[in-house]
């Protein structure tokens, strides 16, 4: 990895033994953050195609209809 890029990533992210963590070391106030995705074991190819993503951490099905059905009415 070119050292400039490595320096930048190391400066920004918590460096847990070479793999970069999801959150920056220092968080500025009043700014929104999206955690940085880190590698994980992807789904098998057939599962990935069905789930619409290869990464379990991004597999977020919309459950609107179920959520409404389960909503307590009283």
């Amino acid at each position: 990895m070119e050292n400039t890029e490595k320096d930048i990533l190391e400066r920004i992210f918590d460096d847990e033994g070479g793999t970069f963590g999801a959150m920056p070391r220092k968080l500025a106030l009043a700014m929104a953050y999206v955690p940085f995705q880190t590698w994980e074991k992807p789904y098998e190819d057939d599962t990935a195609l069905c789930r619409g993503t290869a990464f379990p951490c991004l597999d977020k099905p919309f459950i609107g209809e179920e959520a409404v059905k389960n909503a307590r009415t009283e």
């Binding site: 995705q37 992807p42 190819d45 990935a48 290869a54 990464f55």
Partner: peptide, 17 residues
């Protein structure tokens, strides 16, 4: 199709990593 989809996912991931 499965391989092509995995490649598309790899593409998106590698763009930022």
């Amino acid at each position: 199709q499965q391989s092509c989809f995995a490649l598309a996912e790899a593409n998106l991931y590698l763009d930022s990593h």
